[in-house]
């Protein structure tokens, strides 16, 4: 196991994830960013929220083949970062507010899903 990992609350299911994020929004947290990592075939998401300069992190594991739910319905600003991961990791998010279909950065000619 790694030492000095960042503190993050583990989230099990996508329903729970959306509920927690809605709760955070009504608590006055701002969406900071989301980090996507490759882990055990699937992907690890770390959602980073911020309030009064304190960070709150949620960790959620996306199983291989799973289509993660978009949080852009709750925080609109999430749409760019989720579109970015569609490009770079070849993921598909469900329910994106604006869907670039994997062509936010990349053209059909560029390498596909370069970070995956």
């Amino acid at each position: 196991m790694l030492e000095n990992t960042i503190e993050a609350t583990e989230i099990k299911s996508s329903g729970e994830l959306l509920k927690t994020i809605e709760g955070l929004k009504s608590d006055g947290y701002r969406y900071s960013t989301m980090i996507c990592l490759k882990a055990n075939e699937g992907h690890d998401f770390i959602y980073v929220f911020e309030k009064d300069n304190k960070l709150k992190n949620l960790r959620y594991f996306v199983k291989p083949g799973e289509k993660p739910k978009s949080v852009s319905g709750i925080y609109l600003c999430a749409l760019l970062i989720e579109n970015e991961y569609q490009d770079l990791f070849g993921l598909t998010f469900e329910g994106l507010a604006i869907d670039y279909k994997g062509h936010l950065y990349l053209t059909p000619n560029s390498p596909k899903a370069p970070l995956a």
Binding site: T33, L37, L76, L79, L80
Partner: peptide
Amino acid sequence: VYYVKGNGTKNLERLKVRTPTFANIP
């Protein structure tokens, strides 16, 4: 916001940068 992850080799495993304009474009 910089996120770095190292795995004990000389290369970093992951570097993620959330830049201010990225947050301002929405």
